[in-house]
Simulated scan of single mutants.
Amino acid sequence: MHDAHPGPTLALGLERTALAGHSYGAWIALHHALASSRVDRLALLDPTGCFAGYRPGYLLRALPMFLAPTPARVRSFLNWESRGARFDPAWPALQEAAAGFEKARPVTGPRPDAAALRDLRTPVLLVLAGGSRAHDTARVAAAAARVLPHAEVSVLPGTGHHGLHHFAAHEINEKVGAFIGSPRRAEGP
């Protein structure tokens, strides 16, 4: 595989690097890994748009927040998605404050091509939120296993999509740290 463009790894003077991303950030990291030979390891934390779609109920519940964001709508959505779990008060406040900013549309697109995913030789760690309302965790795990048979998959029970990094930070740090620090496995066929 040749790099489609030099990208940030070369600009930083790195020959290879590990990437990790959560949600849409995981979608970005996966697309970068597919376009670059410089990604040594890839950790995807409850990725969206990579292996399966969103649950329709999640999208319907999020729609008011996206169409006319207000702090109250953001708070209501996060409370619903997290099933009422208590966040560090600073995090929802930050999300609520962002509701008033002009929205730049993120660059999104289709799921990665299944054939391209099967050809990916970068070791992948997939950490899924077992209580995610964003998507069906079992469906995401099964879809990922079909296209990334050598991926290491871990499901953290009782965590939601938006609360994953709050309520499972210790487990995520351990899993990602061990994955990035482990010797590189032989690449698949």
Rank of each mutant, 00 (worst) to 15 (best):
G7A: 04
A68Q: 15
V153A: 13
T48H: 05
L44F: 06
W80I: 10
C50W: 04
R111V: 06
P8F: 11
R121K: 09
F66A: 12
G188T: 00
P89T: 08
R73V: 00
A68W: 15
A97Y: 03
T122D: 06
L78R: 02
D119P: 00
F77Y: 02
V39L: 09
Y58A: 08
G84Y: 01
R83Y: 03
F66D: 04
P106L: 01
D113I: 02
E15T: 14
D136I: 10
L120S: 08
V124L: 04
A104P: 11
E15D: 13
G25E: 07
S76M: 01
T108H: 11
I172E: 10
F167T: 12
S132G: 06
H150S: 11
R185P: 14
T159A: 15
R185Y: 03
V153N: 05
P8Y: 10
L59Y: 11
E15H: 15
R133S: 07
P112G: 06
P71C: 01
F66W: 13
P183G: 05
S132M: 07
G21P: 06
A151L: 00
A145W: 02
V140M: 00
M1D: 12
Y24S: 10
K103Y: 06
A145T: 09
Y54I: 09
P123T: 02
W27H: 11
N79P: 02
G53T: 12
L67F: 05
P92T: 03
G131H: 11
Y58R: 06
L10V: 07
E187I: 00
A20R: 03
L63F: 10
A26Y: 08
S76H: 09
A52L: 03
A18S: 12
V107W: 10
T108C: 11
G181S: 10
V107Q: 14
K175A: 14
V155Y: 07
E96Y: 03
A186H: 06
L30W: 07
A72R: 13
R73A: 01
E187T: 09
A144F: 00
P157T: 12
H162M: 12
L30T: 15
P106R: 05
A52Y: 03
G21E: 04
A93V: 03
F179L: 08
T159W: 07
V107F: 11
M1L: 10
R146L: 04
W27C: 01
H162S: 13
G181K: 07
A115D: 14
H31A: 01
L164H: 08
E171D: 13
